[in-house]
Design a protein around this nucleic acid. Structure first.
Lengths: 152, 152
DNA sequence: GTATTTTATTTGACATATCAAAAAAATACT
DNA sequence: AGTATTTTTTTGATATGTCAAATAAAATAC
């Protein structure tokens, strides 16, 4: 019943970009839902930043560096940091080596929330690859990396 | 030099979600750049809607149905349709079968732009899977579908 | 045949992405 | 040193995503 589409003009459902987009949006919805059910007022992207800030808590990270590490625009980083700072999960301290910049550190609450959410995030990751063999996961990684490179 | 992370707390670059996100964002940037260089004032999401509206130009599609077909929220659809209508690429006509709803049709300009951009989109798709065998593309599709299901 | 529920669309609030531009500090150059 | 360029951060504008709520019409229940 569905009209047959040509190879040069395939149905949307067969377009890889479309499938990647659907997959990612599903993952975001799922993650946000899990956080919400755990009573954590945090989005998936705020989580990513909180994680990286915790990873670098020894020496602190600059917003610019954070943006690079997470593959985001500095402009997006500014806003996410504003929100996390407003929530009291991290703080910007002056960067002694560069007065343009600052260094971001997790607050005690921020470290605590990070530790608390980590096992949930791990469960979500496992849930995503349920039924996948190790080979399949590696292949998926490989394909995604090559595709990203192809579009650079 | 990069500090080794445990299996339960892997570095971000090893997290599948992160890789999917990077891949998708790269694809969006690439598509928007190609459209822009072609002088087409259209985003990747506006393109998707324009495509579907063209696919259904025989009978028209309702906004709600469009949202379902594209896996988007009706709220997002409303806004994208507003923009495309403002650009003169489509029009909403009353739905004779349901007065709550409307039916969306491409304008002549909309059909024309669709035909004009189609070959470029095809090139982008090819670019993305450069170096992939047919088997690999099928596997990628399969993995993405299973992952999406796992998170439903 | 009226009351209740469901459906289709829109709007509002907020988070994030993109790009452009502004501002201030650091660097490079001559 | 003094000027020009680059880097880091922020802000503004716009597009889209999420969810919640409002509205009107359709469908269903009774």
């Amino acid at each position: 019943m569905t009209s047959k589409k040509s190879a040069i003009d395939p149905a949307l459902e067969e377009v890889l970009f479309f499938q990647i987009d659907q997959c990612m949006r599903q993952a975001v919805r799922y993650t946000n839902r899990v956080f919400q059910e755990a009573g954590a007022d945090l989005t998936k992207d705020q989580w990513l930043v909180l994680k990286k800030v915790n990873d670098e808590r020894e020496h602190g990270v600059s917003p610019y560096n954070l943006a690079q590490l997470l593959g985001k625009e500095p402009a997006s980083m500014t806003r996410i940091l504003d929100i996390l700072e407003r929530k009291g999960l991290l703080e910007r301290r002056p960067n002694p080596a560069d007065r343009r910049s600052s260094l971001v550190f997790p607050s005690p609450t921020g470290e605590q929330l990070y530790q608390q959410l980590l096992p949930m995030v791990e469960k979500i990751r496992e849930q995503a690859v349920t039924g996948f063999s190790a080979t399949e996961v590696n292949r998926l990684r490989n394909y995604l990396g090559r595709m990203t490179e192809n579009l650079r």
